[in-house]
């Protein structure tokens, strides 16, 4: 009767096992430093333009939207505060993670999926290399290193976007904007804004690698794995952000 649950439960279990092995490999030789740096370049540097663009416009649009609502209460000067809190706590981590999921979870799934269907993964194992150590661990670590950094950049660029809108169209002065933006932030906001991308990074990399390594059915299967990886990673980001926020909100208040 519960057969329909077997597949998803098995998949969750397999992702955890994959994550356990990938983490275990961090302290096991050999360590593929070159692969780590290549992946950091692909994920970190490669995602920079898209993350900057998304961050900038989400900050700008946030300033436009919020200034209207705040004006109702005569608190338009507080736009900086709303923009910084929203970006640092929520939008920065979530939007950056979504961008990286769209760009890199799909990349990982399609790359590993292609390797799977062309027997390169089998060849790797047959030639004495653990594919998890060579392929999954560097991708997981590279995402864990770079996603928080990308988020910090997205946060700053977003606040800067809000600042440009504030001084150009809302009649708010620069010092006013930056003072409220700065004062609104608490250490817990910063912590929340960094814990989230760190957690998301594991979801993105492990989901991407899991679907890639389990690809079946030739080139069509690679396409399917790529789509599934992006969809599952994106949904997971929203689910995780809810729970992490719940933990932080519950702790602070």
């Amino acid at each position: 009767m519960l057969d329909f649950l077997k597949g998803p439960v098995q998949a969750v279990q397999d992702v955890f096992i994959l994550g356990g092995k990938a983490i275990g490999n961090i302290v096991r030789r050999p360590f593929y430093w070159t692969d780590l740096f290549i992946q950091m370049d692909i994920i970190g540097v490669g995602s920079l333009p898209i993350v900057i663009l998304t961050g900038f416009f989400s900050g700008a649009v946030m300033a436009l939207q919020m200034s209207n609502a705040l004006a109702t209460y005569g608190a338009k000067e507080q736009t900086g505060m709303v923009v910084s809190i929203t970006l640092v706590r929520e939008l920065g981590p979530a939007l950056t993670a979504l961008m990286v999921a769209g760009r890199n979870a799909s990349g990982m799934a399609s790359e590993l999926g292609s390797m799977r269907v062309t027997e390169q993964i089998d060849a790797m194992r047959a030639l004495g290399t653990d594919p998890i150590q060579k392929l999954v661990t560097p991708r997981m670590l590279a995402t864990a290193f770079t996603l928080p950094l990308l988020t910090v950049i997205a946060d700053f660029v977003g606040i800067f976007g809000g600042y440009l809108v504030a001084i150009s169209t809302l009649g708010i002065t620069g010092p006013q904007f930056w003072t409220t933006a700065w004062q609104a932030l608490d250490y817990s906001d910063i912590a929340q804004g960094l814990v989230k991308p760190f957690v998301f990074s594991f979801a993105i990399s492990l989901i991407g690698c899991y679907y890639g390594l389990n690809t079946t059915g030739g080139t069509q299967g690679v396409g399917r794995a790529t789509t599934q990886a992006v969809v599952v990673a994106s949904v997971l980001i929203f689910v995780l952000t809810f729970f992490i926020t719940k933990i932080f909100v519950g702790r602070v208040y």
Binding site: M115, T118, E119, Q120, D122, A123, M124, R125, A126, G128
Partner: peptide, 17 residues
């Protein structure tokens, strides 16, 4: 891995990286 070092294999699709 130690066992496979003594085995050679050619995969159906070549399996080249």
């Amino acid at each position: 891995f130690a066992v496979r070092r003594k085995l050679g294999v050619l995969f159906q699709e070549g399996g080249l990286f």
